[in-house]
């Protein structure tokens, strides 16, 4: 996963490049939580362009991050889906 933070727009982008399942989701969740707390962005984008596989663990992860964003009273997170 590659993380990019755009200071000007307070935008945090996570580009996920691996398959998302129970195993990889733990790593993604840990890294994403860490970066979100570090930068406190106004907007978070998950880029799933290069994701070839995702199961319900991935859905749980996205929902979890969304709830976290609501908790921090941040603007809704956007998800960029291609498939």
């Amino acid at each position: 996963m590659i993380t990019n933070y755009y200071e000007r727009d307070k935008l945090l982008v996570f580009k996920i490049n691996e398959e998302i399942d129970e195993c990889t989701v733990k790593d993604i969740r840990r890294k994403a939580d860490y970066e979100i707390e570090r930068f406190m962005p106004r907007e978070v984008v998950f880029d799933f362009d290069n994701v070839t596989f995702m199961d319900s663990a991935g859905i749980g992860m996205v929902i979890g991050r969304f709830k976290q964003a609501q908790l921090l009273r941040r603007k809704d997170k956007n998800c960029k889906f291609k498939q």
Binding site: D55, S56, A57, I59, G60, M61, I63, G64
Partner: peptide, 11 residues
């Protein structure tokens, strides 16, 4: 609490 979506069997 562990961020499960509960969609396994449905999927």
């Amino acid at each position: 609490n562990l961020e499960r979506s509960g969609m396994g069997f449905t999927i």
